[in-house]
Simulated assay, not measured.
Amino acid sequence: MTQDSQGESPVRAGWPLYEVFVRGKRGLNHVHVGSLHAADDQMAVRHARDLYTRRNEGVSIWVVRAAHIVATSPDERDPFFAPSGDKVYRHPTFYAIPDGVPHM
């Protein structure tokens, strides 16, 4: 099979881009570790496992099509997040976190 100028086959160039998130240990958050192209969701999970957990780094993998991610822009930061500033009950300032709680 021939390759294009970026080294991808014509078939693979049409595959959707997936973003990969891996959780390292139980109780930790998933962290973005990279991207990959795959023909479908199941192939994306298998390829993510092979590429990003080769040394048993993860206990959970999430893959999501990059086209489905919706995000705010840095320009919207102040007006978008401003309403949460006046809701002090959302901030953990009214109680002490016990020393035995490792990831909060």
Rank of each mutant, 00 (worst) to 15 (best):
M1G: 11
M1R: 09
M1D: 10
M1I: 06
T2I: 13
T2L: 10
Q3E: 07
D4R: 15
D4T: 10
S5V: 15
Q6E: 06
Q6T: 14
G7F: 00
E8H: 00
E8T: 07
E8D: 09
S9Y: 06
S9D: 12
S9K: 03
S9W: 04
P10G: 10
P10E: 11
P10Y: 02
V11W: 00
V11H: 07
R12K: 07
A13G: 10
A13I: 05
A13M: 05
G14M: 06
G14S: 11
P16S: 10
P16K: 15
L17D: 09
Y18W: 15
E19I: 13
V20L: 15
V20Y: 15
F21M: 07
F21H: 14
F21A: 08
R23L: 03
G24V: 03
K25V: 03
R26M: 07
N29G: 05
H30M: 02
H30V: 01
H32G: 01
H32D: 00
V33Q: 02
V33A: 01
V33M: 06
V33S: 02
G34L: 10
S35V: 07
S35M: 11
S35K: 15
H37W: 10
A38P: 02
A38L: 04
A39R: 15
A39P: 02
D40I: 06
D40F: 09
D41V: 11
Q42G: 08
M43C: 02
V45N: 03
V45D: 00
V45Y: 10
R46W: 09
R46G: 04
H47S: 13
A48M: 03
R49Y: 12
R49D: 00
D50Y: 13
D50C: 09
Y52E: 02
T53N: 14
R54F: 09
R55T: 12
R55K: 09
N56K: 15
N56S: 06
E57V: 04
E57I: 05
E57M: 14
G58M: 09
G58K: 10
G58I: 08
G58T: 08
G58A: 08
V59T: 13
V59H: 00
W62N: 06
V63F: 04
V64R: 02
R65A: 14
R65P: 13
A71E: 08
A71L: 11
A71S: 14
T72R: 14
S73M: 13
P74I: 05
P74S: 00
D75E: 15
D75L: 07
E76S: 14
R77D: 08
D78N: 07
D78W: 07
D78V: 15
D78G: 09
D78M: 14
P79C: 11
P79I: 09
P79Y: 06
F81Y: 12
A82E: 00
A82P: 00
A82H: 08
A82W: 04
P83C: 11
G85T: 10
G85F: 01
G85N: 11
G85I: 00
D86C: 07
D86H: 12
D86S: 14
D86Q: 13
K87V: 12
K87Y: 00
V88G: 05
V88T: 09
H91I: 05
H91S: 05
P92K: 15
P92W: 11
F94V: 11
Y95M: 02
Y95T: 01
A96P: 01
I97G: 04
D99P: 04
D99G: 03
G100P: 01
G100K: 03
G100N: 14
H103R: 07
M104S: 06
